[in-house]
């Protein structure tokens, strides 16, 4: 197992390098640049800007300089659009925000989703099943960009309970967490339910029941763990998606997370910010798919690496 983890980490480095090179090239291939504006800049001003940010060098050199900056100084460069901020500062300000609401939303989605899924499965075709399925379908079909303005309307304007946006104490977290977690929760509930149903029909559950174990023990001790396998393979990428932010959440709740920065940087051609967040998301994705694989082996003894 230890060897497996080491091998995976070794592969991660070239993977990240490839990610950097490909995104770098794709980004530069897009029309326009960070200084393309409605009012075209005089050639000399543009040249001065390009020189300042090193954009006048050949692409390969820019990539080498960029990677070297990261490796040697952990410096992701200056933002081209926010001249008083570096990429490190932008990520350091935005990522904790995203991590907070994304992390809470993840825990909420897993807790509620799994509970709903299990409840539906063990009482299949009862009112509880229909209710749970109903809730999860409702949550699934209501996209967060519809839900977010509705939440603001209800809880800020009508009820006056919650601030309509911004970032501060826990009171600011509620609406972002609800809006972000619902569709994940619905997916988790659906996956849990179907996987649970499958497990409940399997031989080892019949054996467990036949030997007279109480239903509670059958579910918790024998059914839940194997039923979680497909859920876990879904959770790995879902976790990364949630903690690296959602542009919709950042947009509607002005949370200042990196989801919005990511999209903005792409639209603004803020090359350095875009690269920085791409690398962050890439590294987290690699890390959590590794975590998922390790969890797999722990849950299912049949899996060996």
């Amino acid at each position: 197992m230890f060897g497996f983890i080491l091998r995976r980490l070794a592969v991660a480095i070239p993977t990240l390098l490839l990610l950097i090179v490909v995104s770098f090239l794709l980004m530069h291939a897009a029309p326009g640049g960070p200084f393309t504006q409605e009012r075209a800049l005089p050639p000399q001003v543009l040249a001065n800007l390009n020189a300042k940010y090193g954009l006048d060098e050949p692409l390969w050199r820019q990539i080498v300089n960029y990677v070297w900056g990261i490796v040697a100084h952990f410096d992701f460069g200056p933002s081209f659009v926010y001249p008083d901020r570096s990429v490190n500062q932008i990520i350091a300000a935005g990522f904790p925000v995203t991590l907070t609401y994304g992390g809470i939303a993840f825990v909420a989605a897993v807790a509620v989703g799994v509970a709903l899924g299990v409840a539906a499965a063990i009482r299949q075709n009862s009112w509880m099943d229909y209710l749970a399925v109903g809730i999860s379908i409702g949550a699934q079909v209501l996209p967060n960009f519809v839900m977010a303005p509705i939440l603001v309307l209800v809880f800020t304007l009508w009820l006056g309970w919650l601030p309509g946006g911004g970032w501060g104490g826990p009171i600011y977290w509620i609406m972002p967490v609800v809006a972000l977690s619902t569709s994940f929760m619905a997916s988790i509930a659906r996956i849990t339910r179907s996987s649970m149903l499958e497990v409940l029909g399997s031989n080892h559950i019949r054996t467990a029941r036949a030997k007279g174990l109480p239903e509670r023990a059958v579910i918790l001790r024998h059914a839940l763990k194997p039923a979680m396998l497909p859920v876990i393979s879904y959770l790995g990428p879902a976790f990364v998606t949630m903690i690296t932010g959602s542009v919709v959440i950042d947009m509607y709740f002005s949370t200042g997370g990196i989801g919005r920065s990511f999209v903005d940087s792409a639209l603004n051609r803020d090359y350095a910010v875009m690269m920085g967040i791409t690398i962050l998301v890439g590294a987290l994705t690699i890390l959590f798919s590794l975590v998922v694989d390790v969890l797999y082996a722990w849950i299912d003894p049949k899996i060996r690496y």
Binding site: V152, G164, Y252
Partner: peptide, 18 residues
């Protein structure tokens, strides 16, 4: 100055007194 990226949400927040 409060940043609200969506004009409609901003209007709602105006109406809520923010």
């Amino acid at each position: 100055g409060l940043t609200v990226n969506d004009n409609n949400v901003a209007l709602t927040r105006y109406q809520a007194g923010e």
